[in-house]
């Protein structure tokens, strides 16, 4: 067993705690007794081969899919069987950036960002508009982007707008599903940096599903690897020493080496 196996809860300060998670789609078992702790204030990168259930794990933590078995705690609350009001309150403390932004196409960017503000707060319309403007600017979009519709934005700008909406309520935890997929390397690096900066200034915990080795090496504090229906969490150095064949191939393959070289 690897030295950094996350079986023991390593921290009282885990904002996400998953224990004994089992996911099944028909006869196919995706997760089998998966444990995971995400610590407050860290950037956790989640990697794994296709079909290992990265996005499924994300959706289970968000409560969009119900696992077959196991327990998921978000900010100290068990997500199963929460009353509606507490579930909504919990959702207001998490922000999600979906892979393709998932912006509401009938609304402008500013209106998109204001949706959670209107739904969950009693801010005046003027103040909500101001807060939306601040979030849009903090997400690195130009001032005139707020009045645009999603169909008028480039892929990178859609991600930034989605990020602004995810951050609208100052969540504790930010979930990112392949945030740099589909961006050019310069845009991806800028987006990584943006996430790092926002994470520091807003004190976010970031749960990031990614395939981008540059993101993993440059902004993740720890990396969670989905292998053998379980998860192994550790720093990059720890994973580099892991003998597991998939992990070895992943981090020692040509792309993994290139990303590490670029970093050092």
């Amino acid at each position: 067993m690897a030295p950094f196996d996350d079986r023991q809860p390593d921290s009282q300060d885990a904002v996400i705690r998953v224990r004994g998670l089992v996911t099944r789609f028909g006869p196919q078992v995706v997760h089998d007794g998966l444990d995971l702790d995400v610590r407050r204030g860290e950037v956790l990168g989640v990697v794994g081969g296709s079909g290992t259930g990265k996005s499924v794990l994300l959706k289970e933590i968000l409560g969009l899919i119900r696992p077959a078995d196991g327990r998921i705690e978000l900010l100290g609350r068990d997500t199963a069987g929460l009353p509606e009001s507490e579930r909504v309150a919990l959702q207001a403390r998490t922000g999600v950036l979906f892979q393709n932004g998932a912006l509401f196409s009938s609304m402008t960017v500013a209106q998109n960002v204001m949706v959670p503000l209107r739904e969950h707060t009693d801010l005046s319309a003027a103040l909500a508009a101001e807060i939306a403007r601040v979030k849009i600017a903090m997400s690195g979009l130009p001032a005139n982007a707020g009045a645009k519709f999603p169909s008028e934005l480039s892929g990178g700008m859609i991600k930034r707008a989605g990020l602004a909406r995810a951050l609208a309520l100052d969540p504790d935890i930010l979930f990112l599903d392949e945030p740099t997929a589909g961006l050019d390397p310069i845009g991806a690096a800028a987006f990584d940096q943006l996430i790092r900066n926002l994470q520091r200034s807003l004190g976010l915990t970031v749960f990031m599903v990614t395939h981008d080795l540059d993101s993993l090496t440059s902004i993740c504090d720890r990396i969670a690897v989905l292998v053998d229906k379980k998860i192994r969490v550790g720093t990059l150095e720890e994973h580099l020493r892991d003998p597991h064949p998939w992990i070895h191939d992943y981090f020692h393959g040509p792309r993994g080496r290139a990303a590490r070289h670029a970093e050092s």
């Binding site: 601040v134 600017a137 903090m138 900066n197 520091r200 200034s201 807003l202 004190g203």
Partner: peptide, 10 residues
Amino acid sequence: ALFNAVREVG
């Protein structure tokens, strides 16, 4: 950090 980030927005 947060205060300065917000002030930068202008």
